Amino acid sequence: VTEGSSSGYIPDDCSFGNISDDGYGIEPTNIIGSDGRSRVTNTTSFPYSAICYLETKWKDGTTTIGTAWMYWKDIAITAGHCVYSSDRGGWAKSVTIWPGRNGSTTPYGSAYAKVMHTSTAWTNSSNANYDYGLLELNKNIGTSTGYFGMHWTSSSLNGKSITVAGYPGSSIKIRQLWKMNGKVASCNANKVYYSIDTEGGQSGSPVYWYNSTYGYQGIAIHAYGGSSNNSGTRITQSLFDFFTSFRD
């Protein structure tokens, strides 16, 4: 087996987003050249309805923001550093998400994580190759928002067209969904690199593409900014199997 896929879900009352939209999206502010991001205002159309503004409250009393994306009716995917931080006391006290948030408008309300998961490689040594998180939510909010599929492959992703969409943390963009399209610049076994503009707050954003058979599929989880490329945690076979095991 060299690759695998899972399908997403679009509710009947959730309109379908234009798959050819030009877009915009990561962390800290990493704008490569001019800022190519654009704001998404139709956050109740899929797949934007399944992308979530996230707030984490930590044991040291601080609160941080991030992004998550629905992968099942009660499962959301995010970055590991949105659920566990050795600098902030370890596991988060609480993580709350608002799917499809658009400023002060929260069309699907909120849900919180009953259980949080990440890799021991992340909790023990902050290994960036394993910076991922999974949230088991307190309600089946994904039946209203829809949810992404997922894809893994052992082949190169170089040159593949992708989108990154999430919630930047800057004061003029906070609680707004922004996205950008681009291509995979390079990849290795655990990371995917791209020159898509990102900003703090977009950690946990889906790095996704559209497949005519399976729909919108996450292929990585945005996690880091860089001087020439930004990057996400690649969906590997083992990570795909782990995430998909929570689909009942």
Results as ranks from 00 to 15, higher is better:
46 F>W: 05
245 S>I: 05
126 S>P: 01
87 D>V: 00
109 G>C: 11
116 M>P: 02
101 R>S: 02
85 S>P: 00
78 T>L: 02
149 G>D: 08
59 K>M: 00
6 S>K: 10
31 I>Y: 11
235 I>R: 07
126 S>Y: 10
129 N>E: 12
138 N>D: 14
184 V>F: 05
217 Q>I: 04
164 V>E: 10
213 T>C: 09
31 I>Q: 06
53 Y>S: 07
110 S>P: 01
158 N>E: 14
19 I>N: 10
82 C>V: 10
157 L>N: 03
31 I>C: 05
129 N>I: 05
181 N>W: 07
184 V>S: 04
97 I>H: 01
220 A>L: 13
178 W>M: 06
146 G>H: 04
148 F>M: 13
141 I>E: 02
71 Y>K: 10
109 G>V: 01
227 S>I: 11
231 S>I: 01
194 Y>I: 08
119 S>G: 05
41 T>W: 02
80 G>R: 08
247 R>A: 06
13 D>R: 15
141 I>D: 00
195 S>F: 05
9 Y>V: 02
231 S>E: 12
138 N>M: 01
242 F>Y: 13
148 F>C: 01
51 I>K: 05
194 Y>P: 06
156 S>F: 12
176 Q>H: 10
150 M>T: 15
110 S>D: 02
7 S>H: 09
165 A>I: 12
130 Y>G: 14
184 V>C: 09
224 Y>D: 08
30 N>C: 12
52 C>A: 15
242 F>K: 09
138 N>P: 02
193 Y>F: 14
117 H>I: 04
240 F>N: 05
98 W>G: 00
56 T>M: 03
77 I>N: 12
9 Y>L: 14
61 G>F: 01
77 I>E: 07
91 W>V: 02
146 G>S: 14
15 S>L: 14
212 S>I: 13
142 G>V: 05
225 G>A: 08
239 L>H: 06
107 P>G: 13
227 S>V: 10
129 N>M: 03
15 S>G: 14
170 S>E: 15
142 G>F: 02
186 S>Q: 11
93 K>L: 00
144 S>F: 04
152 W>A: 11
136 E>N: 05
24 Y>T: 11
194 Y>G: 06
73 K>H: 15
142 G>P: 04
112 Y>I: 00
241 D>L: 07
154 S>A: 11
90 G>K: 12
139 K>M: 00
238 S>F: 03
237 Q>P: 09
90 G>W: 03
139 K>C: 00
237 Q>V: 02
131 D>I: 03
173 K>F: 11
77 I>W: 02
144 S>P: 03
195 S>D: 15
80 G>K: 01
12 D>F: 13
168 P>T: 05
217 Q>C: 10
189 A>R: 08
248 D>Y: 09
39 R>L: 05
201 G>Y: 06
100 G>T: 03
149 G>S: 14
192 V>I: 15
238 S>A: 14
84 Y>E: 03
211 N>G: 10
81 H>I: 03
98 W>K: 01
191 K>L: 14
57 K>A: 14
81 H>F: 06
48 Y>I: 06
81 H>T: 00
81 H>L: 04
240 F>K: 07
